[in-house]
Design a protein around this nucleic acid. Structure first.
Lengths: 143, 143
DNA sequence: CCGAACTAGATTGTGCACAACTAAGTTGTG
DNA sequence: CACAACTTAGTTGTGCACAATCTAGTTCGG
């Protein structure tokens, strides 16, 4: 295995795993009209009920260029509402609608279903998580 | 750690690592006007000189909907040429131009630089690769 | 030989990723 | 207070991902 092949395989492998994951999610989420990034945003809101756009971006690691249109789609779909903060008019609060809260129940099974598809034990997942976190940190610091 | 958090963290971790990787590549490739998927296509061509669109798609795991416009951009940039096969007029052969071959030399350092950014040993990389391959396979078969 | 089934590639439409920029609002300092 | 610096969201433009569809070309059965 040459150095050239080694690294490109690692990046490509991460790349393909990410696609395989989102494909698995897609199969479960599409019937509800959701994409994986939209699901991530809803996950964050199911925990907190209401978050600013900036807080959401920090949680799901997306910038406003991605988040703004995504939130518009969630709003059009009736899952969230946006409102300007009265305390600071720059801030936009994102809140779940009743419809968006109901999705929490409808999608309650998703995590277990994905875990089943992934077919890894809790311990394996933990190991993998640690390795991926370390790798991500190295890559970010080098940049 | 609840089941809900566990799985979404694994997917999100893979997701973020993939982004961190492409960001690292971007820094190296952008000065040459290339994106990471374009670099992958060139990697395949540097190995084989000439490939059909279908063969390329199989190698880099992209469908024609992604590959067609990507190849058009590589062609506009002068890195590749496309030509209809005479044997089978449905088939399009993609070939490196002299300019595209020259890029191979200009980007010779990239793999080592990325490996440096990633900061993982050969052995760690091997372990991670195996785990990711297994995970990807599980996810694909479940779909 | 003719037409159905199949194949290769391109196209269309939706959504995400991200850099660069803009607009509006807030804050801190002279 | 005035104004520069900063912050929050949104917008624009380019490129990738992918499902669905289309076109042109090939192959195979009758």
């Amino acid at each position: 295995m040459t150095a050239s092949v080694f690294d490109s395989q690692l990046c490509a492998a991460v790349y393909k795993t990410a696609h395989a994951f989102t494909a698995a999610y897609r199969r479960l989420l599409e019937p509800h009209g959701l994409t994986y990034p939209q699901y991530l945003v809803l996950l964050a809101l199911w925990e907190s009920k209401s978050l600013t756009v900036k807080q959401l971006g920090a949680k799901v690691d997306l910038d406003s260029g991605t988040l703004s249109p995504l939130l518009n789609r969630l709003e059009t779909a009736g899952h969230v509402m946006k409102s300007r903060s009265t305390a600071d008019a720059r801030v936009v609060e994102v809140t779940l609608t009743v419809c968006g809260q109901r999705l929490h129940d409808e999608l309650r099974e998703v995590p277990q279903q994905i875990a089943g598809c992934a077919g890894v034990s809790r311990a394996q997942a933990k190991t993998l998580l640690d390795e991926l976190h370390a790798l991500t940190e190295s890559l970010r610091q080098a940049n």
